[in-house]
Amino acid sequence: MIQQLLEPCDRITYGQRQREVAAKLGKSVRTVRRLVKKWEEEGLAALQTTTRADKGTHRIDTDWQQFIIKTYQEGNKGSKRITPQQVAIRVRDAYRLRHKPIQESGKPPIVPVAYMLSSSRMQF
């Protein structure tokens, strides 16, 4: 499919071909343009999909993950309910207590950011 986009044609026909290829691949026209560019620069090997090196690994420390889960569990006892956003606020506050903001002279402090775990990753 990408090869037919490399064949010479006028601008209108080329646009139609791009839309057809995008529809067949289930991609946007912009993505098809990127694929054609990669094909021209690197050849067939450029189109091979690769998996991320960090796929399946957590980007959060296990201690923090346990802290988040514990906070969520404690906030949802009995009739009490805590939202993921409220958990994120508590995690952020705890992180800021443990880690002092980095201050460079003449610049505002760099404050660490805490990310939320999706509820699908929380196993109780």
Rank of each mutant, 00 (worst) to 15 (best):
P84K: 07
R30I: 04
Q73Y: 06
L25E: 13
F67M: 10
S120N: 05
I2L: 15
F67I: 05
I60E: 15
S118K: 12
R59F: 05
L6K: 03
M116N: 14
Q18C: 11
T50V: 14
A94H: 07
R11P: 00
L47E: 09
Q86L: 06
Y14E: 02
I68C: 05
K100E: 13
G75K: 01
V21P: 00
P101D: 07
R59Y: 09
Q103G: 01
M1G: 08
G78Y: 09
G78Q: 05
P8F: 04
P101I: 02
W39A: 13
Q3T: 02
A23N: 11
P109Q: 03
R17K: 08
W64G: 07
D54C: 05
Q73K: 13
I2K: 06
E104L: 15
T51V: 12
F67T: 09
D61G: 02
S28K: 10
A46I: 03
G43P: 07
K77G: 03
S105Q: 14
C9E: 04
V111D: 09
S28Y: 07
R52H: 11
P84D: 07
V111N: 08
L25D: 08
R98S: 04
P8A: 06
T57L: 12
R30S: 13
H58D: 07
P109C: 03
Q18K: 14
T51M: 12
W39F: 15
R52Q: 12
V87H: 08
Y14K: 11
A23G: 07
K107R: 15
G75V: 01
R34N: 14
T13V: 10
Q18H: 00
R19P: 00
G56C: 07
A46Q: 10
P112T: 05
G75I: 01
G15K: 05
A53Q: 12
W39M: 15
W39L: 14
I12P: 00
Q73H: 08
D63A: 13
G15E: 04
D61I: 02
L6A: 05
Q73G: 00
I110P: 01
A23T: 13
H58V: 00
I60Q: 15
A114K: 03
K107G: 08
K77D: 08
Y95A: 15
Y115C: 11
V29G: 01
D54G: 04
Q123L: 11
K107M: 14
V21K: 03
S79A: 12
I69E: 09
D10P: 04
G56L: 05
R92P: 01
E41R: 09
G78R: 05
S105A: 13
E42P: 00
L97V: 14
V21F: 01
G26C: 11
M116V: 10
G43N: 07
A94R: 11
K55H: 13
E74Q: 14
L5N: 02
Q16K: 10
